[in-house]
């Protein structure tokens, strides 16, 4: 009887895992397709960064103020950050928009944003690591940030 339990437990577990894995590969396929298209839009977004940057720039110097970065579009939604500069250093980074297309993206953004902000404030540049599990959001965040830093002439 113990054999019957072991066999049925093994079969049931294997079946459940297989079903999960099968629907997982489906997600993976659609996911990578979306990723390749998003690379294009992300590129287009960052090309627009110069316009946004120049709009906010002008006479801006190292004095201080707030500078908005470009709007970077991703497959999960648009990302835009704003920095606050005082005496030539970044004192705050605020996310004006974050990837928010679906609940899951919001959740990823909520985790990534505070970590990115802390990293940027420490490094005083956009040259920081992306957040694990939030690569798309991180890339967009740092692209927008770079535009804001450019606008501030830091």
């Amino acid at each position: 009887m113990r054999i019957r339990a072991a066999v049925s437990a093994a079969l049931a577990s294997a079946g459940i895992l297989l079903a999960g894995w099968q629907s997982g590969t489906f997600v993976e396929d659609t996911g990578s397709a979306a990723a390749s298209t998003s690379a294009g839009t992300a590129g287009a977004g960052s090309s627009g960064s110069s316009t946004a940057g120049s709009a906010g720039a002008g006479a801006a110097a190292k004095a201080g103020g707030t500078y908005a970065g470009s709007v970077v579009k991703t497959r999960f939604g648009a990302v835009q950050v704003q920095i606050t500069v005082k005496a030539g250093s970044i004192t705050d980074v605020e996310a004006l928009q974050l990837t928010d297309d679906d609940r899951k993206s919001i959740q990823i953004s909520n985790r990534a944003a505070p970590l990115l902000r802390a990293e940027v404030l420490a490094a005083q540049s956009a040259d920081v690591q992306t957040i694990g599990g939030a690569t798309v959001t991180s890339d967009a965040y740092l692209n927008s940030l770079q535009a804001a830093i450019d606008a501030a002439n830091l």
Binding site: A5, A6, S8, A9, A10, A12, S13, A14, I16, L17, A19, G20, W21, S23, G24, T25, V27, E28, G31
Partner: peptide, 19 residues
């Protein structure tokens, strides 16, 4: 016994199904 093992498998399958 089967349900107990299957529940562990299901927890892992949730994650597999999410890619």
């Amino acid at each position: 016994v089967t349900v107990a093992w299957a529940s562990v498998a299901a927890a892992v399958a949730l994650w597999l199904a999410d890619g």
